[in-house]
Design a protein around this nucleic acid. Sequence first.
DNA 1: TCCGGCCATCGATGTGTGTCAATATAGACG
DNA 2: CGTCTATATTGACACACATCGATGGCCGGA
Lengths: 115, 115
Amino acid sequence: MELLECCAPLAREPIGAEQSGAVARVFKALGDPVRLRILSIVASHVDGEACVCDLSAAFDLSQPTISHHLKVLKDVGLLTSERRASWVYYRVVPERLAELSALLSLPAGVSGAVS
Amino acid sequence: MELLECCAPLAREPIGAEQSGAVARVFKALGDPVRLRILSIVASHVDGEACVCDLSAAFDLSQPTISHHLKVLKDVGLLTSERRASWVYYRVVPERLAELSALLSLPAGVSGAVS
DNA sequence: TCCGGCCATCGATGTGTGTCAATATAGACG
DNA sequence: CGTCTATATTGACACACATCGATGGCCGGA
């Protein structure tokens, strides 16, 4: 999963019809309470990584469900995974979060403030 | 639709189970290509507002479908609407975008950079 | 080599959602 | 009041998705 290649804020110029699909996929991945919490837990975890066992323990959900959510977040480039011994560790991709944050930022003077 | 009341970045501390639901609703609204383009068109429009006729002309979709997407964006507080004469004008809520942008921002030193 | 723990994949199921045509509502204008 | 335009609501339908149990794959230890 490469960069979104459209880091101009949404409020600066209309997003293209093609790019909107790629961006929407990432936001859709964030549009679930469980995935939001997973991302937040991983991001704020010590060493910036967490194994599936850590995550499963934080939810009242089955292990396949957690694994499914992790796959969704990984497929859109928000997480990466690495296997060490029996455990699989997940980390956030900071560039990805930064991209989204920049996309939602306000280009200094929106909402008709400049009169 | 009030503030999300949880402006600490996701990467700073795990988001609460309750707040994650409210935040996920907003991201879910952004998780559609059409809604992303609508939001971007409205935000980058002159005077920061656009009527439904402007938006309908930008898509190859039926008018009810556009109206539906506008309602979704409005329900999560990303847009406001105002009726003037026969037309309804939509504007973005900059605070809402700023909230989300802050939520995705990186708290200076994620991904274990500090060693 | 076998067993047990960790994680991913598969198949099924109920629920949510994007879309449309049809209809309703609201305002402008005769 | 009647009609036309602009927008919202309703009902229906196909599709996507979150969740689970069952199963499979991978690895370490005995």
